[in-house]
Amino acid sequence: MAPILSIRNLTKKFGGLTAVGDVSFDVPEGSIVGLIGPNGAGKTTIFNLITGVYKPTSGTIEFREKSILGLEPYRIADMGITRTFQNIRLFKNLTVFENVLTACHMNASYSFAEAILRLPRFRTQEKALVAKAENLLEIMGLMGYRDLVANNLPYGLQRRLEIVRALALNPVLLLLDEPAAGMNPDETEQLMRLIGRIRNDFSLSVLVIEHHMDLIMGVCEHIVVLNFGEKIAEGTADEVSRSPQVIEAYLGTSLEAADA
């Protein structure tokens, strides 16, 4: 089966700094792929390139065998790629429900005129949007916080809400940027199960950036390791954790090796 996302020779330079250099990898359809690497390895830059926030210096990104290079972020979202952010970006002053309802907008098609005049199509579609948003909150366990202003939500749940908001867009590829950042082991464990569950329930492919190795090793079928903007290893959790380059990137070289 063709991969859902295919990245080839992707490069992004900021002036003289190569944030991402000649990186290639695939996300197979329906899989959970982990993107790991030390700080500054270029992981988030890759997310920004995939979602159109940055334009690549060179290389190609193909989604379902069609190039998405140079498209505006909202067009890429339209096609079914969405993401969460490392530093949570919710609509802070809106309630949990409104955050999700806003993101449901793609499921409706009524025009400005129909909205302003409250024509029948507006009312029926609006009802469907509300039902969809509430259903999502229900299955993701946030219904108890429906009317809470997002800013007042506990940290872990803010991360969860961001995932729910992303799911409201009916994505086929979900990018998660450090979803477990700042979570305790218990919460991380829960999140791990959640990621596996949404992949199955929503038939998604997931690309996840994470520093929690338990999460990456536990949930990802395939792992890509970056260091200084370059891919240094790729494979299953087992293969990656035995790769000498990966060990070197994370732990440094041993004294004997350095002497030799």
Binding site: T82, N93, L169
Partner: peptide, 12 residues
Amino acid sequence: EEELAAQIAGIN
């Protein structure tokens, strides 16, 4: 509220 998040949510 959050321009970047709006873009990512498919809003032009």
